[in-house]
Amino acid sequence: MKRAFLLILLLLSTEASAEQVRIPWKGDYPHNSAKHWSKDRPYGSGFSKNFKNGAPEEFAEVQRDGELNAFIYPKDTKNPVPFVLVLHGCDGLSTLTKEWTQHVADVLNVQGSGALVLDSFTTRYVDRSCGPADLHWGRRRADDAYSALDYLIAKKLAKADEVYIMGYSNGATTALVSMTSQENDHRQHFAAAFAVAPGCSPSLQHSAVYTGPIVIFMGDQDDANDPKWCLELAQKKRSVPVQMIEYGGATHGFPVNAPAHDFMGWHLSYSPTAEKDMMQTNISAIKTKKFAKGVELR
């Protein structure tokens, strides 16, 4: 009961310390298609010109335009600063995810960076995208991320060349997609990506040409997203630095401070050591703009 009360207070303080905004969604790019979701190609694309494209998670609804909810920390930024776009996982902005994004924002703010937490699901009335839909929604949400990037730059909140994308789970898959050459038709681009426990499926990593630095963080006990696929991704020769940092004994839930539990058959448990190291690595990269290649065990 005490923990629940404290959590409610935390979430209320989170909402009070952030500025909630609505971001116009943009999807009319050459790499996207006007075709609706079809059972004949259930998750074959995900690149859509429609805000809602008729996927099962959207209850088959199609909608051309839309807006996304977002939370900006700190809310009183007066001059452009480095910014990190933070993306939730396949279960949306759940209570635990809100707590995690608040923590990420707090750590970044102390170090002089802003944070924008983007909600891809609420205004689409999507509950979750876990399972086979993961890559489909990773692709769908890439345009969400770029819509937020354009917003930050247009509002002069962020330095145009210092906006980073950081996602957890499906949000991390989105971060990887956002750094591919397929997204080059966007006018603005992310400085680098921090992908936390992404799905590095072969259909993504075998053909991907990345356009900027990427750091992947995985637990070697992740049973939701196979670490070996991310290992293959990081080991492939590329023109930009791609690094995988693997934490021994860590599960898919290593960055989220919550009691150990199972979710959809996956075991999730918090690793404060791995989580702290991950945030320190990100902050160092933002400050120094230095990125490594290859695989590192920690």
Rank of each mutant, 00 (worst) to 15 (best):
M1E: 15
K2S: 15
K2N: 15
K2E: 15
R3P: 09
R3S: 14
R3G: 06
R3Y: 10
R3H: 06
A4M: 10
A4S: 08
A4K: 06
A4E: 07
F5I: 15
F5G: 01
F5R: 09
L6Y: 11
L6S: 09
L6R: 15
L6N: 08
L6D: 01
L6E: 08
L7W: 07
L7E: 11
L7A: 13
I8F: 12
I8V: 15
I8G: 05
I8M: 12
L9T: 12
L9M: 12
L9C: 04
L10W: 11
L10D: 14
L10Q: 14
L10C: 02
L10S: 12
L11F: 10
L11Q: 02
L11D: 06
L11S: 05
L11N: 04
L12A: 07
L12Y: 03
S13D: 06
S13N: 10
S13W: 03
S13M: 02
T14E: 13
T14L: 11
T14R: 15
E15P: 00
E15W: 12
E15K: 03
A16F: 10
A16R: 14
A16Q: 14
S17R: 14
S17P: 04
S17L: 11
A18I: 10
A18N: 03
A18G: 04
A18F: 13
E19C: 05
E19Q: 15
E19H: 07
E19G: 11
Q20N: 06
Q20V: 08
Q20G: 01
Q20H: 13
Q20Y: 02
V21W: 07
V21T: 09
V21D: 01
R22L: 15
R22V: 08
R22G: 01
R22I: 05
I23H: 09
I23K: 12
I23L: 09
I23T: 13
I23A: 10
P24I: 10
P24A: 11
W25Q: 01
W25I: 05
W25T: 04
K26A: 11
K26P: 00
G27T: 00
G27Q: 03
G27M: 05
G27V: 08
G27W: 14
D28C: 02
D28M: 03
D28V: 03
Y29H: 07
Y29E: 03
P30K: 04
H31A: 09
H31Y: 07
H31D: 02
N32A: 03
N32Y: 02
N32D: 00
S33V: 00
S33N: 09
S33C: 00
S33F: 04
S33G: 02
A34R: 00
A34H: 01
A34G: 04
H36I: 03
H36L: 09
H36G: 01
H36D: 08
H36E: 04
H36S: 06
H36A: 10
H36Y: 06
W37G: 04
W37S: 02
W37E: 01
W37P: 08
S38C: 02
S38T: 15
K39I: 10
K39Y: 06
K39M: 06
K39G: 02
D40W: 14
R41D: 11
R41G: 00
P42H: 05
P42V: 06
P42Y: 01
Y43F: 12
Y43E: 14
Y43H: 10
Y43M: 06
